[in-house]
Amino acid sequence: MMRFSTSDGLKLYYEDEGSGLPVLCLPGLTRNARDFDDVAPHLDGCRVIRLVSRGRDRSDFDPDPSNYTVTIEARDVVELLDHLQLERVVVLGTSRGGLIAMTLAATAKKRLAGVVLNDIGPRIEPDGLQKIIDYIGVPPKGRDFTEVGAALNAAMGDDFPGISDLRWTMLAERWFEETRDGIALKYDPKLAEVVKEGSSAPAPDLWPLFDMLEGIPLGVIRGENSNLLSASILEEMQLRRPDMASATVPDRGHVPFLDEDESLGVIKKVIEMVDR
């Protein structure tokens, strides 16, 4: 198990496999390294690195939950790159991971060789944010992964039509863990407090961060049924960055799994655009 120490003393888990162009995978708000299991086999010729943010899965929980911020998590990314002695990486950022990528454009732009944003942009739709607030910190419903998978299907199935029961069970295994007391959260429940407190403040203007990606190969993937990244915001992003690779994935909500043809097309286009 690979871990490195942050400047404030936490040990964060990461995975590092393959060789070639380094692609740093940053998962969503409550997610972990397993979210990139579907796309990893398609990243031939790449060194695939997955960082699990503080307070999630095998990374240390922060004794001060107020540190669960995009800014500090972006600092953790830079410290991982320093630990690995990597000057630049392509960032594949899912949701929260994409927000971290945009923050890095403002704080450490030279470390970005390319960026792919998975179902995230400079405006987060209120309905999508409210859905996150409603579920974050709530223990999973079910006595085993099969039952939890069925509950996920009931809650998310309309946005992800056609997903098999087997895959819902697999997603439950990725997102939660089995304990003596049953199926439990795979992240610090105190993360919910930080998110809910932050949601009460006016939404920040993230367009300046998006604009700071200028000059960096950029791609955006959107789920057709996403409630977090709207079609109109994706259109505005495209107008600001005509060179941006983008695709909308049918039958996917927040977030696409990244093994879809449309997702892989965007990722591969960005990789092809990287100056090596």
Score class of each variant (00 low, 15 high):
1 M>L: 14
6 T>P: 06
9 G>H: 04
10 L>D: 04
14 Y>E: 03
17 E>F: 12
17 E>A: 15
23 V>C: 12
32 N>D: 13
32 N>W: 01
36 F>S: 09
55 G>W: 04
55 G>K: 10
56 R>Q: 06
56 R>S: 10
56 R>G: 05
64 D>N: 15
64 D>S: 15
65 P>H: 10
69 T>C: 05
83 H>V: 05
84 L>I: 12
85 Q>F: 05
85 Q>R: 10
86 L>R: 01
89 V>I: 05
89 V>A: 08
92 L>Q: 06
101 A>Y: 03
101 A>S: 14
103 T>K: 08
105 A>R: 00
106 A>C: 12
107 T>V: 15
112 L>H: 02
112 L>A: 13
119 D>H: 01
123 R>N: 10
124 I>Q: 12
127 D>H: 07
133 I>M: 15
135 Y>G: 13
137 G>F: 11
141 K>S: 14
146 T>G: 08
151 A>R: 03
152 L>E: 06
153 N>E: 14
158 D>F: 00
162 G>T: 04
164 S>T: 11
169 T>Q: 05
170 M>L: 14
176 F>K: 03
180 R>W: 09
187 Y>G: 03
191 L>T: 10
192 A>T: 00
192 A>I: 05
196 K>A: 13
198 G>E: 06
200 S>Q: 15
201 A>G: 08
201 A>L: 13
205 D>I: 06
205 D>C: 07
206 L>D: 06
209 L>D: 11
210 F>P: 09
212 M>H: 11
218 L>G: 03
225 N>G: 07
228 L>C: 09
230 S>M: 12
233 I>S: 02
242 P>Q: 08
243 D>R: 02
243 D>N: 15
244 M>R: 03
246 S>C: 10
246 S>D: 04
247 A>R: 01
257 F>V: 06
258 L>I: 11
258 L>E: 02
260 E>V: 07
262 E>L: 12
263 S>F: 05
264 L>I: 08
268 K>W: 07
270 V>H: 09
272 E>L: 09
273 M>H: 08
274 V>S: 10
